[in-house]
């Protein structure tokens, strides 16, 4: 079972495993704002949206797939613990005056 089809079984989607949302007017309304909602860019009441995602297997699958895609892309740019620590130490050295860089050409 792959990472996408895992969600199909998770949600028990009836139509197909590709997840393209449902076909009702409410599903289309969700489809128009779903990515904004997942990006945290959707202002206003979201209860109707979250209720629909809970109730509609097709839209729920659509949401899960986009979220999984977003998470995977995010991981591509995530600094690992060592990198994060090295950058923090580098910044600390700069801010601590331990590197004389103010008048040096970069």
């Amino acid at each position: 079972m792959n990472a996408f089809t895992r969600f199909a079984s998770l949600f028990g989607a009836g139509k197909d495993a590709s997840g393209r949302g449902g076909s009702s007017p409410e599903c289309r309304r969700v489809g128009e704002v779903l990515q904004m909602y997942l990006d945290g860019e959707f202002d206003g009441d979201t209860s109707w949206l979250t209720d629909h995602l809970d109730e509609c297997a097709d839209c729920g699958l659509d949401s899960a797939e986009f979220q999984q895609l977003k998470d995977a892309i995010s991981r591509l740019g995530q600094p690992d613990t060592d990198t994060r620590q090295r950058l923090q130490e580098f910044a600390d050295h700069l801010a601590g005056g331990e590197m004389d860089v103010v008048d040096d050409p970069v």
Partner: peptide, 10 residues
């Protein structure tokens, strides 16, 4: 990022 940090500090 280190390069940019030096530039930002300056």
């Amino acid at each position: 990022v280190q390069d940019a940090l030096v530039r930002a500090y300056r």
